[in-house]
């Protein structure tokens, strides 16, 4: 969807047009779900976060600022809701542990490491990052958003974003190295 058509739909939604808003939902719910899932790794929670995010947007649609893209605004809300979820989940110790123990995968059959398994390992390692580091890592490396967009979503300066990204990548690399026992990530 081009930016002009998107802005047109937003203007209609501002006047209470639910049909226009539905088109916005259909166009962006994939991105919202993807971000939420990469944070929570829980389908139901991700769907709940997406619903809550769109409801928030609908209620505050009149506050939409044209200088930000709708995608950026949505990503910001989804990221904040996901971080809130993680905060409460850590408190309840309720994080989804469905990913297998990564050391088991690595030692059992290193040669047949598939993308899904690697994904599980990286997600598991990402759990050890701080909230900010995880947010920067998910948005920049897993969602592959532009650096400027990540800064806008997380309201971080470029330097702060880079610093968090550096430590996140360093921890992920160290974690992967431990699994592959100084194999210099040859298997990846």
């Amino acid at each position: 969807m081009d930016q002009e058509a998107e802005l047109d739909l937003i203007k209609k939604a501002m006047k209470g047009d639910a049909v226009a808003f539905r088109l916005l939902v259909e166009a962006h719910q994939g991105l919202a779900y993807s971000i939420a899932f990469r944070f929570t790794r829980n389908e139901q929670e991700s769907e709940d976060i997406v619903q809550e995010a769109f409801l928030k947007i609908w209620k505050n649609i009149l506050r939409y600022e044209r200088e930000f893209r709708f995608k950026t605004w949505l990503s910001k809300i989804v990221t904040n809701l996901s971080l809130d979820y993680l905060k409460s989940a850590y408190k309840k110790n309720n994080i989804d542990k469905n990913a297998n123990d990564y050391t088991m995968i690595a030692t059992s059959d290193e040669n047949k490491l598939e993308a899904d398994e690697l994904k599980g390992i990286v997600y598991q390692l990402a759990e050890q990052l701080t909230k900010k580091q995880k947010a920067v890592f998910v948005l920049r490396d897993l969602e592959q958003l532009e650096s400027e967009e990540v800064c806008r979503i997380l309201q971080l300066s470029n330097g702060n974003m880079k610093s968090n990204l550096y430590y996140a990548r360093l921890k992920i690399k160290e974690g992967l190295q431990k699994i592959y026992k100084n194999d210099e990530l040859q298997r990846l």
Binding site: A115, K119, V122, D141, R169, I172, E184, L185
Partner: peptide
Amino acid sequence: KMQISLNRIA
């Protein structure tokens, strides 16, 4: 190499 792996996940 790590970045390539992360791109694959993305």
